[in-house]
């Protein structure tokens, strides 16, 4: 983690059907800064615009208003080269082996395959699946499949990894395990990660910052700096400080 601002967003807004009879505000009031190497949790209820925010940052949707800058220096960030994505579903191609799945973005980008294969081997090790490279997705558990999709998001050495509720479909125990794995992968890889979640304790456990978003209208309510020390461990959830942060998020979401 550095103090270099990596993502700068100010006054970001997304409205569907603007100027029409019934404009729908999908996102508003988003002003935030994410430093290089930070893990930003984005938490909020359905309809708060967190996925829209992801889509805009990924360059897949255009904002209606506001500014978005990514990269530490002008022009050193290419949204078609430096973004990795992980979704709630692992979205693995069932006819490809684990390694072949991880290599897919490298093939699309036309990267040198020899290096990509080496990197895939390293990533398999990073996500704890060294022995499973030749298996097919259906031979893996849900948690393992999601590890593969994390490895796939890192194959082209992106500068920014966007994760949209990556552990939302896993059972509670697997999810906690994956939280720890993600923290380890994040620390080893040094990537800037944006992590969208419904889970408040997950958001606090992972994030160096938390963006709390609320629905109706969809907006960024508050940015919270999480000053819990890394490496974080599950037992921290029982600490007083952890409770302070989760209570803060609950109250922002009006759930007290």
């Amino acid at each position: 983690m550095t103090d270099q601002p990596f993502i700068r967003i100010s006054g970001l807004r997304k409205v569907y059907g603007e100027g029409g009879a019934k404009p729908y505000v999908a996102l508003s009031d988003v002003t935030l800064t994410v430093n290089e190497g930070e893990l930003l949790s984005i938490v909020g209820p359905s309809g708060c615009g967190k996925s829209t925010l992801m889509m805009i940052i990924a360059g897949l949707q255009k904002a209606s208003a506001g500014e978005l800058q990514i990269g530490t220096a002008q022009g050193d960030f290419d949204p078609h080269r430096h973004i990795g994505m992980v979704f709630q579903q692992a979205l693995l191609l069932k006819w490809r082996t684990v390694t072949e799945n991880i290599l897919l973005p490298a093939e699309f980008l036309g990267l040198p395959m020899k290096e990509a294969r080496e990197r895939a081997r390293y990533l398999l090790q990073l996500v704890g699946l060294s022995e499973h490279g030749e298996k097919y997705p259906k031979q893996l558990s849900g948690g393992q499949q999601q590890r593969v999709s994390i490895a796939r998001s890192l194959i082209h050495d992106p500068k920014l990894v966007l994760m949209d509720e990556p552990f939302g479909a896993l059972d509670a125990l697997t999810r906690e395990k994956m939280n720890l794995e993600l923290l380890r992968i994040w620390e080893e890889s040094g990537k800037t990660i944006l992590f969208v979640t419904h889970g408040i304790s997950e958001a606090v456990l992972l994030g160096s910052k938390i963006a709390v978003m609320t629905a109706g209208p969809a907006r960024l309510a508050e940015m919270i700096d999480v000053k819990l020390p890394y490496p974080r461990r599950l037992e921290m959830k029982t600490h007083e400080d952890f409770g302070v942060y989760t209570r803060r998020v609950y109250s922002l979401l009006g759930m007290e």
Binding site: A58, H80, R81, M85, F87, P105, F108, L109
Partner: peptide
């Protein structure tokens, strides 16, 4: 989406 972020 994933494919589009890597210029597919």
């Amino acid at each position: 989406y994933l494919a589009r972020t890597v210029r597919a």
